[in-house]
Design a protein around this nucleic acid. Sequence first.
DNA 1: TCGTCATATCAATCATGATTGATATGTACC
DNA 2: GGTACATATCAATCATGATTGATATGACGA
Lengths: 108, 108
Amino acid sequence: MIDMTIRSASQTHEATDITNLLKVLADENRLKIISCLSSGEKCVCQLADALDIPQNLISHHLKVLKTNRLVSDERRGRWVYYSLKDKRLSDFVAQAGEFCDCDDMDCP
Amino acid sequence: MIDMTIRSASQTHEATDITNLLKVLADENRLKIISCLSSGEKCVCQLADALDIPQNLISHHLKVLKTNRLVSDERRGRWVYYSLKDKRLSDFVAQAGEFCDCDDMDCP
DNA sequence: TCGTCATATCAATCATGATTGATATGTACC
DNA sequence: GGTACATATCAATCATGATTGATATGACGA
């Protein structure tokens, strides 16, 4: 069998790890949350308001992001504030745009 | 409502476009195919052999990649050769590794 | 034309995960 | 204590898409 390790500058990762990360990112609501958090920490109700998404759904997606160590949380009083663990994450997501449809010349 | 446009160096994209691209990438078999194609064009049977994945499944995933303009194909005789439209795609995928679990200090 | 190889398509199954509504937990203030 | 607010969890539904097996298409050589 073939070696399915994927190499980046500093590390090697199994394809399954990367697949899993991409699955986490491949959700519109989670991308919106990440985009929203890129300007700084927000509590759940701020995200729910800003994105017009029900509170329980925001909470669910934040849990997915937290489980996968993409965001961290901190309770202050009644509020729980979430923030990106790595600010570069939103840049990474934006980079994906480079590969979206019609980036190339032979596009009809 | 909030502006959900995501900005990269050269362009802006809707969150839904990027979500779609990430969904396409978020499949282990497709990542393996991309990784395999990063070393140069391959025909379907080469991919099926190298990755130990049934031919029809390879064909299906290649269609998804092609529909999303990530690969191009060229028939030569009985064989159809596929290649990455943008070689940077495999680098992009590798970059995702940076955000996988345990990249940060406060990891248990 | 016939047989074979390479690839694509189709229908059916199967698994996964997003969303929803209801409810529980936890915090603050009276 | 009791109430109100912020958040999390749970069960149920729903949609999507990966995989499989069978078969079709298309190209080549005899």
